[in-house]
Design a protein around this nucleic acid. Structure first.
Lengths: 109, 109
DNA sequence: TTTTTATATTGCAATATTACGATAAATAAT
DNA sequence: ATTATTTATCGTAATATTGCAATATAAAAA
């Protein structure tokens, strides 16, 4: 249906899935990487950097903002976006606590 | 358009985005977590565990398999799915090399 | 061989995502 | 005050995702 039954999963599972989903587009990965390099954090610079139109970038920024991966602050005429350390650390921590200790398949497989 | 201009981004950006996208659904997060706990790695067990129909689970498993997050091996009548350590490590490494060293916004923000 | 069990595939409806032109809104510059 | 600049929003078309019933497939059990 295109609807995901989020009620059936834990809050953490839903939250992590939301964050992963937000990172699940190359443009948004590129935005995150751009902000990590801190070349600039002004929206216009991102629009210049990426091969997408201004409305499209604005939409991607909104999605990243919706899950608190970035935050934007008004800076005169323009808007300065920067990464939300707290949320990124949350992802990192999740990866550490789960994925980090995978083992090879045991004999059952 | 629903089409993402993947040609415009780097191979790594596209690959990471694909992996994140595959993790961008609570059911698939739940599947990964289930396999991490290794209660069992047979498909049927996952169907029993999750509140989704068998075809839906099968579809989610297919998506995880498509990006090499899991691999399945035939075990008689059933199929044993297990995590692909290599791919999970790739995610972990990416997180380490990027997200892990975020700093707070500087004076420009 | 027939039946059961386990998983995959097909087909389809509902919804979501992606992209962008046009336009709005809001501040800056002239 | 007018114009330019910057970002957001609206509207819309194209495509993708999600979910499941029905059905197919394939091995196991009877």
């Amino acid at each position: 249906m295109g609807i995901s039954k989020s009620d059936y999963f834990s809050e953490e599972q839903n939250e992590i899935a939301s964050l992963m989903k937000a990172l699940g587009h190359p443009a948004r990965i590129a935005i995150i990487e751009f902000l990590l390099q801190k070349k600039s954090c002004v929206c216009g610079a991102i629009v210049t950097e990426l091969p997408l139109s201004q409305p499209t970038i604005s939409q991607h920024l909104k999605e990243l903002k919706n899950v608190n991966l970035i935050k934007g602050s008004i800076d005169g005429n323009s808007i300065c976006y920067c990464l939300n350390q707290k949320t990124l650390k949350k992802i990192q921590k999740y990866i550490q606590l789960t994925i980090a200790n995978v083992n090879e398949c045991d004999t059952r497989c």
